[in-house]
Simulated scan of single mutants.
Amino acid sequence: MASEGPDIEEDDAGEFLTIAVGAGDAGGRLDKTLAGLTEALSRARIQALIAEGKVGLGEAVLTDPSAKAAAGDYRITVPPPAPAEPLSEPIALDVLFEDEFLIVVNKPAGMAVHPAPGSTSGTLVNALLHHCGSSLSGVGGVARPGIVHRIDKDTSGVLVVAKTDAAHQGLSKLFAAHDIDRAYMALTRGAPHPARGVIEGAIARSASDRKKMAMVKTGGRHAITHYAVERQFGPEARPTAAQVALTLETGRTHQIRVHLASKGTPCLGDQTYGSGPPAEPVRAAMTAAGLARQALHARVLGFVHPVTWEPMRFEAEPPADMAELIVLLEAL
Rank of each mutant, 00 (worst) to 15 (best):
A177G: 06
G118W: 09
P80M: 05
T18H: 11
R293I: 03
R205N: 08
K68D: 13
G14R: 11
V61I: 09
A20E: 15
K217H: 07
G251I: 06
E52R: 15
R205Y: 09
P306C: 04
D73F: 13
A167W: 03
P318R: 09
A109W: 02
K107P: 06
L260G: 12
A261I: 08
F303A: 10
A23I: 06
T225M: 15
A60Y: 03
H130S: 09
E15I: 00
G220A: 02
R150L: 12
S42I: 03
A242D: 12
R299S: 13
L301P: 01
G276S: 14
Y227L: 13
H222V: 07
G170S: 00
T155H: 02
I46R: 00
T253Q: 13
E85I: 04
V113N: 09
A48T: 14
R231K: 15
L128I: 04
A167Q: 05
V300I: 15
S172P: 02
A177D: 15
L49G: 03
L187R: 01
E4C: 09
S262F: 14
A70T: 14
K212M: 10
S137H: 04
M286T: 01
E324C: 09
L96P: 03
T265G: 07
Y227C: 14
K153W: 07
F303K: 12
H226M: 06
V113Y: 09
S134Q: 12
G234F: 00
V95C: 01
A109C: 06
A186L: 08
V198W: 03
K263V: 14
G302M: 13
E249N: 10
A245H: 15
A44Q: 15
G219P: 00
E15S: 10
S134F: 00
G190S: 03
P266Y: 10
A162I: 00
G170R: 00
L96I: 05
G141A: 11
G276T: 13
N126C: 01
V258H: 05
A207V: 14
A69S: 12
H131A: 09
P83N: 00
T287Y: 03
A245D: 06
A69F: 09
G72Q: 13
P281V: 08
I180Y: 01
A20K: 13
I91S: 05
R252W: 08
P281F: 07
I8Q: 08
A237Q: 11
H114K: 10
A51L: 03
G24Y: 11
N106L: 10
S121Y: 01
R231P: 01
D12V: 14
T18F: 11
L30G: 12
K68N: 13
S3E: 15
R293Y: 02
L187I: 11
H178N: 14
A167H: 06
A245V: 11
G302W: 14
H305F: 07
G110A: 11
V304D: 01
G56Q: 07
H168P: 00
F314E: 05
A186W: 07
V105T: 07
V104C: 13
D179E: 11
E236C: 03
P90G: 02
P65Q: 02
G5L: 08
G264S: 05
